[in-house]
Amino acid sequence: MTRALNVLNEEQINHFLKEGYLIVKGLFSKEDVRTIEEKFEEISHQVIPGLFEPDLNGSTDDPLKRYPRVMHPHRFDETAKQYMLHKPVMEVLSDLYGEEALAAQSMFYYKPPGSRGQALHQDNFYLQVEPGNCIAAWTAIDAATEENGGLLIVPKTSEHEISCPELADSTESFTTHYVKPPKDQKAMPVIMDKGDVLFFNGNLIHGSYRNKTKDQFRRAFICHYANASATHISNHYRPLHRQDGTLVDLEINTDGGPCGVEFDMAYPH
């Protein structure tokens, strides 16, 4: 029996299940994007200890020191929390999960001109959602292209087991972990317009290019979610939120995963 869907169709569901990802065009309105732009422009001039610590003195040549990613902005900003729980996103997630989604994490990437990319990796290596999986909702605040550091994905790797990463090339990646794609499978660029949202499975191998432009940011608002039937998640992502904002406290996942418990699980993601 075909289950009832809220906003997606069966073709979209099947694409997500087969390929591990789904792009929903224009899910964020122009007004939504403008609100997010303005809020994170404001945040870019602040220091939020432990969550956003930019170099406001211009003492480094690394553009990511001036514009690092903002971790968990929903924990200190109501606009970020509002868009993490954005109804159109939560409706898509409900269709993809077949049940309610719980919001676990928010992030904002400025990706300034000249900045390094992020080596290929898998999200559920860090979130450790069990049983089930995490899903990312990656919203383009600027158009994402190959030139300005758009996302790379390896299709059909959503069924690929979570792997213990190798060491990434620090000259091209600002994170230290690298997951090698399976043999004969290659990363492909995801070209997106402002307001598009890319949803992808927590096992899908993905990363990003360096921003090769001299004058373009590639801003993105990125959130991660767990299925409501999950019982465990990594401690970094607790507590979680239902769409109405109420808190959910899953158990801490103490399983060391494919690298063992001694591996540094401080998420670089």
Rank of each mutant, 00 (worst) to 15 (best):
P182D: 05
P182L: 07
P182K: 12
P182Q: 12
P182A: 09
K183F: 00
K183R: 13
K183S: 07
K183C: 00
D184S: 14
Q185M: 15
Q185H: 11
Q185R: 15
Q185F: 08
Q185C: 03
Q185Y: 05
K186N: 14
K186R: 11
K186L: 01
K186Y: 13
A187G: 08
A187P: 11
A187N: 09
P189T: 05
P189I: 01
P189N: 08
V190Y: 05
V190P: 10
I191Q: 05
I191N: 10
I191Y: 13
M192K: 02
M192F: 09
M192R: 06
M192Q: 14
D193L: 12
D193W: 05
D193K: 15
D193C: 06
D193N: 15
K194E: 15
K194N: 10
G195D: 05
G195Q: 04
G195W: 06
G195A: 11
D196L: 12
D196Q: 05
D196V: 09
D196F: 11
D196P: 10
V197E: 00
V197Q: 00
V197Y: 00
V197L: 00
V197P: 00
L198R: 04
L198T: 09
L198Y: 02
L198K: 01
L198Q: 03
L198G: 04
L198V: 14
F199H: 10
F199P: 10
F199G: 08
F199M: 12
F200T: 02
F200A: 06
N201G: 06
G202V: 00
G202Y: 00
N203F: 15
N203M: 12
N203W: 12
L204G: 10
L204R: 02
L204K: 03
L204M: 13
I205S: 08
H206W: 00
H206G: 04
H206F: 03
H206D: 07
H206T: 06
H206I: 03
G207F: 04
G207Y: 03
S208Q: 02
S208K: 04
S208D: 07
Y209W: 12
Y209A: 03
Y209E: 04
Y209D: 04
Y209I: 01
Y209S: 06
R210H: 03
R210N: 13
R210Y: 00
N211V: 04
N211P: 01
N211S: 01
K212M: 12
K212A: 15
K212Q: 07
T213M: 11
T213D: 11
T213R: 14
T213L: 12
T213K: 13
T213P: 09
K214F: 02
K214A: 10
K214I: 05
K214P: 00
K214E: 15
D215N: 15
D215K: 12
D215L: 11
Q216P: 06
Q216T: 13
Q216H: 13
Q216N: 14
F217E: 00
F217I: 11
F217T: 05
R218P: 09
R218L: 13
A220I: 08
A220E: 04
A220P: 11
A220T: 13
F221K: 01
F221W: 02
F221T: 03
F221M: 02
F221Y: 14
F221Q: 01
I222R: 09
I222A: 07
I222F: 14
C223L: 05
C223K: 03
C223H: 04
C223P: 07
H224V: 03
H224G: 13
H224I: 08
H224W: 06
